[in-house]
């Protein structure tokens, strides 16, 4: 049975789906026995989902067009000069 520290050391790879089958088995075994790591794992997954779904820092529709026009105007001006 792996320790909580060992679990935390592999959590990054586990979340990224990037662990070997044997390691995955050990991590999942640990999760099924350790309440704290279970909470950390579960809430980290939920954090990722909340961040992904939050629409944070989205460019307002109204701003997109004018900025694009400004960019193209600056580029055209540069290429002419």
């Amino acid at each position: 049975m792996i320790t909580c520290d060992e679990f935390m050391a592999d959590l990054g790879n586990y979340l990224e789906g990037d662990v070997a089958v044997e390691v995955r088995r050990q991590l999942e075994h640990h999760l099924s026995h350790c309440q704290i790591c279970q909470v950390v794992y579960d809430s980290t997954l939920k954090t990722v989902k909340i961040v992904t779904d939050s629409g944070s820092f989205d460019l307002p529709d109204a701003a997109a067009g004018p900025i694009k026009d400004k960019i193209m105007a600056r580029i055209r001006k540069k290429s002419v000069s």
Partner: peptide, 10 residues
């Protein structure tokens, strides 16, 4: 620019 402006902005 149109395709990627949101990504760059975020």
């Amino acid at each position: 620019v149109a395709r990627h402006s949101r990504r760059v902005y975020r």
